[in-house]
Nucleic acid binder design. Structure first.
Lengths: 178, 178
DNA sequence: ACAAATTGTCAACACTTGTTGACTATGAGG
DNA sequence: CCTCATAGTCAACAAGTGTTGACAATTTGT
């Protein structure tokens, strides 16, 4: 970690804190301190707090090596986004980022638009609006119950049981006929 | 609204702002200003910011006239909690409150504990941990997709179609066998 | 080696935050 | 009427916010 330059260090810790605690609940001094760097360098490298946050969104939903063509391919990638975390196990996932930031007054619309443009849109094109919506609802509900409310009875993510529960509901979403 | 005393006015606007924007994202001055009241009166009447927030949680999950005894009764009440808002249509719902506050560092555990103690607990007792969890996941997913991400394809709440979509997924959650 | 651009350091800025204390109504009980 | 607790007003506080400018250090290009 010491072999990163300042920009990378800031970006790493910014993503960690912004994604898990929400944009408005994190101060630049907290991030800079965690990165072992002066606060002023944020404005220098990223133009300000908002610029730093936007930089953390780079490739947030970029989970395809190649754009998906079939339903199964897209669904598989989607499930992967929600069950795995981007780098290590301790890093917050893109789903957590959505839950903590989509309500924020300053970056809420930014985050929602990004999600819709980079993800929900392709879901809609492939599945149609109703099934795409139910699909997203199911998969987000799982994340909320697990990450946000920490409801008992939901298996640990990345476990086989978790996938089984999730796929059961996904199947239900697909069997919906408006 | 002018026939309310200061304490009631503060409570009303505090609930509105705390529940829709999250505890840390709202300042006492915003609330006091919206209520047309001096800031210092918050500490006078509620002891401080945290006391005011806790006061807004009074009866947040209190949607039963009488405690539910059957599954259908409990499910009905649960669906009502998620599709209706407590007072008027413009007031934030308890679900919104959970989504905006359960991640907060200062009040997150408070809110999560309250939800579990006052709601998920009785769900678990009646349905067992797995089905209770899936049930909560389904119903929360709906709220996230609608309120937080504003996904297209999900019908407006309190519409018949919304209930139909929701009940379809709920039925799926109940048909799960671990 | 020199000049120039980039990167880092430090202190200050204007502003907002929650909270407190002194002071002034206001109104009820003796 | 006087007293006194409750309610409201106002100004200040220490702490924390994002951002900026002046300066030093370091790296880069020639």
């Amino acid at each position: 970690m010491s072999e990163m330059n300042t920009k990378e260090k800031l970006l790493l810790h910014a993503r960690r804190r912004f994604w898990t605690n929400g944009y408005s609940n994190v101060s630049l001094r907290q991030i800079a301190s965690a990165a072992g760097v002066d606060v002023a360098l944020v404005s220098r490298h990223f133009g300000g707090k908002l610029g730093l946050f936007e930089a953390t969104l780079e490739g947030a939903f970029n989970i395809f090596e190649t754009p998906p063509t079939s339903e199964t391919e897209l669904i598989e990638a989607f499930v992967r986004l929600f069950t795995e975390t981007p780098r290590t196990q301790t890093e917050p996932s893109a789903v957590t980022m959505l839950l903590t930031n989509s309500f924020d007054e300053e970056v809420g619309s930014l985050v929602r638009d990004l999600y819709d443009r980079q993800f929900q849109q392709s879901l809609r094109d492939l599945l149609g609006p109703e099934r795409a919506a139910l699909f997203a609802a199911v998969v987000f509900g799982f994340s909320v119950a697990e990450k946000s409310l920490q409801v008992d009875g939901i298996a640990a993510p990345s476990s086989a049981e978790y996938r089984r529960q999730l796929e059961h509901l996904i199947h239900a979403a697909f069997s919906y006929s408006g």
